[in-house]
């Protein structure tokens, strides 16, 4: 029957997902059963009791207590089963085990930032060890967001005035998609993140040296990747269209005016400062809304982005 489940639901990344899916599929069968019952009865009645003439006589049936009790009580009992089932799995999903790895998560328009216990931060990508419970302690810097991991069957709103939590434990290494599910404006659709579940040794290595696959990648290619994954793409276009921020097309080597009147040349130093201290020079015609990437990008990553920007002729 797993093909049938896969028809409805995304791949299962946790044992909680398996529990949720069991109830989901139970309700699917309930739905199909009741729908066929209702639709079947309607079909049969329409065929059998089609009007033959305007003078058709019909029996005077007004009610039937036994029947009415039956179709009230059976659905009620089924509903109670579903209620308790959903309640049970909900409680296990909301109460995190005490030994969980705690990671704090900040949502802001339109990026997710994760902070590890040792202070390392990561943007849009969360690397976690397999087989260990992970608890996210979440807050928002601006409006509401919601952190949704379809493969884990969990989501929780992220609020500006209060911490919310959710936890998961995945035993299956792999990459899992995260999407924002509380409407938050322009960049809502692009407010994605990725969760990478890795073995314990890979995880320790990651903590030391950053994501393994990126270490050897050519700079410009890495830059292109970061452009998407670090959210630059939400504000900077490559095709000349002005977005939230200036386009990168043909920008390298040009002069630009700052709001404070200075003229700056788009060179390597300027780009580096723009990334690390965006507020120190704001291009005129734009608002100073670019977040700082201080502590979020490793040195090689900044070089990669510079290389990538250079390539946008």
């Amino acid at each position: 029957m797993s093909w049938f489940r896969d028809f409805f639901l995304p791949m299962q990344g946790t044992s909680h997902a398996v529990a949720v899916d069991n109830l989901f599929m139970f309700i699917v069968f309930l739905n199909i059963g009741f729908f066929l019952l209702i639709a079947g009865l309607i079909g049969v009645f329409v065929l059998r009791y089609r009007r033959k003439s305007a003078n058709d006589r019909t029996p005077n049936i007004t009610h039937h207590l036994g029947l009415e009790l039956t179709w009230s009580i059976i659905p009620l009992l089924l509903c109670l089963v579903v209620f308790f089932w959903g309640f049970k799995d909900y409680m296990t999903a909301t109460v995190a085990p005490g030994d969980a790895l705690e990671i704090s998560l900040t949502g802001e328009k339109w990026i997710w930032t994760f902070e590890y216990p040792d202070g390392m931060r990561s943007l849009g990508e969360l690397y976690v060890p397999a087989g260990k419970p992970v608890k996210l302690i979440m807050q928002s810097k601006d409006v509401l967001h919601s952190f949704f991991i379809p493969n884990f069957r969990i989501k929780m709103d992220v609020l500006p005035n209060r911490y919310t939590e959710q936890w998961f434990q995945s035993n299956i290494p792999g990459e899992y998609q995260v999407q924002c599910t509380e409407y938050c404006g322009k960049g809502h659709s692009g407010m994605n993140a990725k969760i990478v579940v890795m073995s314990q040794t890979q995880y320790e290595d990651y903590l030391q040296n950053g994501p393994p696959n990126l270490r050897t990648m050519p700079l410009a290619e890495l830059g292109a990747l970061l452009y998407e994954s670090r959210g630059c793409a939400t504000c900077h276009s490559l095709n000349g269209v002005k977005g939230q921020g200036p386009t990168w097309k043909g920008s390298y080597g040009n002069m630009r005016k700052m709001t404070d009147g200075r003229d700056m040349m788009m060179d390597e130093n300027y780009i580096r400062t723009s990334i690390l201290q965006p507020q120190s020079m704001v291009v005129s015609g734009f608002e100073g809304i670019m977040p700082t990437y201080q502590g979020l990008l490793r040195d090689r990553e900044i070089l990669a982005l510079i290389e990538f920007i250079k390539k946008q002729k």
Binding site: A19, V20, L23, F24, I27, L30, N31, F34, F35, I38, A39, C79, V82, F83, W85, G86, F87, K88, D89, Y90, A93, S146, F148, P150, R153, I154, K155, M156, T181, E182
Partner: peptide
């Protein structure tokens, strides 16, 4: 009937968490 029956998914807490705002 379909509208009502699919509401059962959403009343069930654990399943609603997955389906909410989709």
């Amino acid at each position: 009937t379909i509208g009502g029956l699919t509401g059962i998914f959403l009343g069930a807490l654990s399943v609603d968490i997955h389906l909410h705002d989709t």
